[in-house]
C-alpha cells in the first residue's frame, strides 16, 4: 500500500483524525503506560501523520498501550490517539493473521464496564 493510502486507512479505521493534533502532548501527559513505551501517544499520532506507519507497527510500544482511553478522554482536539494506535495494531495483526480469539467468542466476554475497543485489543494481544 502507498504511504498516503496507509495514512487514510489508519485514519478511517480509527475514526479519529491525526491532522487535528496541535502537538500539545496532553495525551502523553495523561498516559499511565508512558514509561513502558518506546514511542509515546503524541508520537503515535505524529508518526501516522508523517507516514512512518511501518516503523510504528514494528515498535514494542504499541503493544504496551492499555487501551485505557485516558489520552482520548483528555485530548483537546478530538484526535483520539487511543483509537489511532488501535487502528495501527489492527492493521498489523490483520496482515499477520494473528487473532488470538475467534470473533464469535467476543459477545460472551463483553462487559459494560470495559470499553469494547479494549476487549477487541485484548483478543488480539493477550487471549490464547
Amino acid at each position: 500500500m502507498k504511504t498516503e493510502d496507509m495514512i487514510k486507512e489508519i485514519t478511517r479505521i480509527s475514526g479519529g483524525n491525526p491532522a487535528k493534533c496541535m502537538k500539545c502532548g496532553k495525551c502523553s501527559g495523561a498516559c499511565p503506560a508512558y514509561d513502558e513505551m518506546d514511542y509515546h501517544p503524541h508520537q503515535f499520532v505524529n508518526m501516522v501523520l508523517d507516514g512512518r506507519i511501518e516503523e510504528l507497527a514494528g515498535s514494542k510500544g504499541i503493544w504496551n498501550c492499555l487501551s485505557c482511553f485516558a489520552c482520548l478522554e483528555r485530548c483537546p482536539r478530538s484526535v483520539e490517539p487511543a483509537r489511532i494506535i488501535e487502528a495501527v495494531r489492527v492493521v498489523t495483526l490483520r496482515k499477520a493473521g494473528a487473532n488470538h480469539l475467534k470473533p464469535d467468542d467476543i459477545p460472551a466476554r463483553l462487559d459494560d464496564d470495559i470499553p469494547q475497543q479494549a476487549i477487541t485489543s485484548a483478543m488480539r494481544k493477550y487471549a490464547k
Binding site: 502532548g25 495523561a30 498516559c31
Partner: peptide, 13 residues
C-alpha cells in the same frame, strides 16, 4: 532572569 522552568508539554492529570 527569573529562572522560570518553561516546559513544552501539557499536564495530563
Amino acid at each position: 532572569q527569573y529562572n522560570v522552568h518553561y516546559i513544552k508539554g501539557m499536564v495530563g492529570k
